[in-house]
Structures are given as structure tokens and as C-alpha cells.
């Protein structure tokens, strides 16, 4: 899952440095993730994992770092599987 998220960040994040040089907990906004790029990342993550971010996760904090995105996706995938 994390590799997919890193690939999405490479494609849509517009980051100032290669994603493989960014630690899981490093601040993505400090690394150049703009507000709009975070939206593009969100939409790409939704498509890749077939999930939909609920309103309470549609915020800067969910995309603060790679670990946070992984957690959010993990919980959404978990919810989906629990429902199914």
C-alpha cells in the first residue's frame, strides 16, 4: 500500500525532492505539497484503493505525511471490508 501511495505522490505531489528521500513521518507540506496537489493526491488515492474519504478526513492533517495517508487509507479499506 505504501509503495502505491509513494508512486501517487511522485506523480501528483509536485514535491521538491524525490519521494524515496522522504521519510514516512516527514512533513509533506514542508516538502512542497501544495493545497491543490494534496487534493489531486487525495483523488488518486481514492481511485487506486477504491475508497472515498469522508468529510472528516478531507483535511490537511490526513495528508501531512506518508504515514498519515497510509493510516487513513488503511482505516477506509478496513471499513469497507468490515461492511462487506
Amino acid at each position: 500500500m505504501q509503495q502505491t501511495i509513494r508512486d501517487i505522490l511522485t506523480k501528483h505531489g509536485g514535491l521538491a525532492m524525490p519521494v524515496d528521500q522522504i521519510a514516512d513521518t516527514a512533513d509533506l507540506y514542508a516538502a512542497g505539497l501544495s493545497s491543490f496537489a494534496s487534493v489531486q493526491v487525495m483523488l488518486a488515492v481514492e481511485e487506486a484503493f477504491d475508497v472515498e474519504f469522508p468529510d472528516n478526513l478531507l483535511n490537511r492533517k490526513s495528508f501531512q505525511n506518508i504515514a498519515a495517508i497510509t493510516d487513513a487509507v488503511g482505516s477506509l479499506v478496513g471499513d469497507r471490508e468490515a461492511v462487506a
Partner: peptide, 14 residues
């Protein structure tokens, strides 16, 4: 749109 909900939340949060 949905992208906009995130932009709106960010604008409010900050």
C-alpha cells in the same frame, strides 16, 4: 466538487 470540500476544510482549518 469533492476536491473543493477538501480545499474548503483546509481554508477553514488554517
Amino acid at each position: 466538487g469533492r476536491a473543493g470540500r477538501m480545499l474548503a476544510n483546509n481554508q477553514r482549518d488554517q
